[in-house]
Structure formats: C-alpha cells, structure tokens
Nucleic acid binder design. Structure first.
Length: 431
RNA sequence: UGGGGCGUAGCUGAGCUGGCAAAGCGCCGGACUGUUAAUCCGGAGACCGGUGGUUCGAGUCCACCCGCCCCAGCCA
C-alpha cells in the first residue's frame, strides 16, 4: 500500500492508500461522518459511512478530537464537495497520537497575546502556514537572485566585539575577552569579503536590544546585506530596485494561493517595477514643508513624514543623500554636498515604510578615521575595518534588506510578528 | 522611555448614571446518511488581573501595582 502525501493524492485516484496527518475538523450526521485531515502539504477529507465500516473503526471515529494524529486508509476519489477537492472513503482508521480536548486554537478570533503564547500550535493554522510558505519562497528567491548574478554568499559572525551602529546591543560574556555582542549587522565583515570576492551577500539573523514596541520592529530579525566592489551609489540603487522587483514578482508567480489565503490585494504589487523614484533628501524636506509638515533641513524623517512621501507614488521610493549627522559613520561623504552622505532609504508603499537602508561606503582612510573619532567609537575595535582602506581601498556599496519587513509588505500583514516562526520581541522570549 | 487604550468562563466578548454577571465559540449529553466554522434540543463552566480604599452595597468609583495592545522614538 502506498503512503502518499496529500498533495500527491491526485496521482492515486481509484487506488487504496494510507495517509498520515492531523485532524483539523470533524463533522458527523449520525450515520455518516467526515474527517478533514492536514499533513502540511495540503488538506483532504475522509468520509466514513457507519454501515460500511467496522464497529471498531466507527467507535474510533467517535473518540477523535481536533489535532489527533491519525492514519486513514481507503480508496481515493475526486470529490468537489471535499476541502482540497479530493476524498478518501475510509475503511481503516488508526489513531497515532491522541489530542486532549483543550486544544487552544479554534477556527475563530483570538487575541494576539493568546496566539503568541501558543505560537507553537498557532503555526498549524492556514494563515500561518501561508505566511511561512511565502517566507520560504522569498528566501529561495533571494538566493536564486544573487546566485544568478555571480554573488558569493558569505556568513558573517553573530558574536562580535562592539562594532556596528549606535542602537542597543545584546551583551554576553565571552571567555577572557570580556563582553561579546550579538551582531546588529554583518556589513563591515561583508565589506572585507567584497574586497576578496567582488560581489557578496550575507543572509542571517541580526539583533537589536532597542526597547521598541511597534509593528515594524523585532529584537531578532533576518537581514540580507549585499556588498559590491566598484559599485557606486547609483549602481547600488539599480541593484536594489532590480532585487526588490524580483522578489515581488517571484511571490506573485509562485505564491498566488498563499496570498489568496492571506486575502492580499495583489494589484499594488503588480505595479512594482524599475525604476523607482529617487527623491533627494533636500527635495524631500521642501516637499514635506509644502505639505504642512514642520520639519527642517537636518532632521531625520519620521514615520508620518515617510507616509506623506510614499503616498505620492505607486511603487517603492528612494530617499537619497541624507545629512551626515542622521546616518552611520561608514557612509561616504557626498562630493556634491559634503553636509550629506551617499546613501538611500527605500520606502515601501501602502504604509510599510523603510525596507532597505543602503549606502556607498567611505573609502578614504583618514575621513573614515575622523568619523569614527567624532562619533566616540572605540578606535581599537575598528583597526581591521580601517585596514580595508589602508590596503588597496576601493569604491564599494551595499545595502541591508529587512526580510521580515519585506515579507510583511508582500503578504499585506499588520505586524512583523507573524512573518517569522518564533518572533523575538522585548517581552517575548517563549515559546 | 513618553502618550493613549484595555484586562469579565478555556477562547471571543456585552455589562449605561454603583443594585441577582448577557451571548457566541469550544466542551459534555441527545437527534440527524453529504457535512463545509454543519444544524437542532438540553447541560456544565466566572472569588470580573492583584492589593487596598469609598459605600448599606463595587465588574462598575478612587489609589497603587502587574500584564497586554496601539501610537511615537530608535531602525531593517
């Protein structure tokens, strides 16, 4: 007897099979009973008729509960009335693992706190499965995109000395070396790798100990950070718009079913194509003033400011060349206006905000050292980073794409916490 | 960390100016041979987040504490 997965059942019509899975739904009408079974690849329905099964099987059905794991044996039929379109006439029903009556997740509304407390079980529900599949598809698309363009994937350390940016760090003891910190970015290591390999990208978890409680922040999130030797800031933005367009297209092509489960209106996504508008920071400030925002040159853009800008366009928007003080120390001074740096933020439409931060990197050794000192950063921690400018400096650029923010936008979600299997937030370390 | 909101049955959630704590889902018992979150009849299940206070009387008013949600900041 063959033991197909549910997504393979159409190849077994007319034959008897055994299918393993979890009971997601039970219905009974006296002498006929239905079991909806889920195995991760799909859903199907088993039907039992009392007069056609043994008394033992009928009694076993009566004992079934939601999320019991079972094996159903019977002949496969095409059946339009079945969820999944396929049905098994059950002749044998084996209970693998019983499930008590208090299974907490019901097919109804629950509060978010309750759901996150039961995240390990919530993952089994259709919406969460759809999001997980979109995430997996986008991750694969990322690797495919860079592989096709000759990029080398480089894995950067998670335990680091104090380097990176200014926001909060998670600290831990590290042998005799004092404190280690969970990485906020792999970028600096990516720059070293770019000098060795030309075009690289990193793909890994990053950590921020900021006490932020918003729909757009997690303590642990995954970031994709390409770094390309000899790319200037314009090359960098062209790579970004091509990359983001590619990911959106991939989701539209390969995740139509999942996006439908998520009730995502895909029409805004179909508009995403290069080139994305580029708005100079100074022009953005002018624009915001004209729209009644109280903002001055030098200020960073707030969430409301971003929303006003994004509302003007039907696709992601670059805001480029911010004032130096608003940005990280490693960004290259803008030759056309030294008050600013060669950088870009990519703002996603529909209120999703920043999904990418990118820049050309400062390749002048002395200017970089001046910046490190001006920010009061520990100079000794950056000696190796300065070496990249000492031994054959090179024009290079890169960016960081927030995976969860990108998934949240593509799936049309209200909060980052659903985009990752086990989200880490300031008040949530379990499950 | 600042501003706003919320906490009532396993879950969701009414409860007005203080006076016997709704309902739905789930669960239990019963009916039903094609159900789709099945339907119909019956049932159990609540020290109303905690501590103190006001009052003849507090889920309701007050103080403090705890927890959560939303917004802002930080950023991806």
């Amino acid at each position: 007897m063959s033991i197909p997965r549910i997504d393979e059942l159409t190849q077994h019509v007319g034959r008897a099979v055994r299918v393993y899975g979890w009971v997601t739904h039970l219905r009974s009408s006296g002498k006929i009973a239905f079991i909806v079974l889920r195995d991760g690849t799909g859903e199907m329905q088993g039907v039992l008729v009392k007069t056609q099964v043994s008394a033992e099987v009928w009694e076993r059905f009566a004992a079934l509960t939601i999320e019991t794991s079972v094996a159903l044996t019977g002949e496969v039929r095409i059946e339009p009335r079945s969820p999944g379109g396929i049905e098994i006439s059950v002749t044998e029903l084996e209970i693998i693992g019983a499930s008590p009556l208090d299974y907490p997740i019901q097919p109804k509304e629950h509060g978010i706190d309750f759901l996150l407390d039961h995240r390990h079980l919530w993952l089994r529900s259709p919406r969460q499965r759809a999001i997980a599949r979109v995430r997996s598809e986008i991750e694969q698309a990322i690797h495919d995109f860079f592989y096709a363009r000759g990029f080398v994937r480089v894995d950067t350390p998670i335990l680091t000395a104090a380097i990176g940016e200014r926001s909060g760090l998670f600290e831990t003891e590290y042998f005799d070396e004092g404190s280690a910190y969970l990485a906020q970015t792999g970028q600096l290591y990516g720059e070293a790798a770019a000098a060795a390999l030309g075009r690289i990208y990193t793909f890994g978890p990053t950590f921020r100990a900021e006490k932020s409680k918003t729909r757009r922040h997690l303590s642990e999130f995954w970031m994709i950070e390409p770094e390309v030797a000899w790319n200037d800031s314009d090359d960098n933005m062209r790579l970004q718009e091509e990359f983001v367009t590619n990911l959106v297209q991939r989701a539209l092509e390969r995740c139509a079913r999942e996006l439908s489960v998520l009730e995502r209106d895909t029409s805004p996504l179909t508009l995403v194509s290069p080139p994305f508008p580029r708005l100079d920071y100074g022009d953005a400030i002018q624009f915001l003033k004209q729209h009644g925002r109280s903002i001055a040159w030098g200020d960073d853009l707030g969430a409301e400011d971003e929303a006003v800008i994004v509302a003007e366009y039907d696709r992601p928007v670059f805001v480029v060349n911010y004032p130096r003080e608003a940005k990280a120390f490693y960004m290259k001074e803008n030759p056309a206006d030294p008050r600013t740096v060669l950088c870009d933020d990519l703002l996603a439409p529909e209120g999703y905000g920043e999904i990418i931060g990118g820049s050309q990197r400062e390749d002048d050794h002395d200017k970089l050292l001046t910046r490190i000192r001006a920010e009061g950063l520990p100079e000794t921690a950056y000696d190796w980073y300065l070496d990249l400018r000492k031994y054959g400096t090179f024009v290079h650029s890169g960016f960081g794409l927030g995976l969860e923010r990108t998934i949240s936008w593509i799936c049309g979600l209200g909060h980052l916490r659903e985009t990752i299997a086990f989200p880490r937030m300031m008040n949530r370390l379990r499950p």
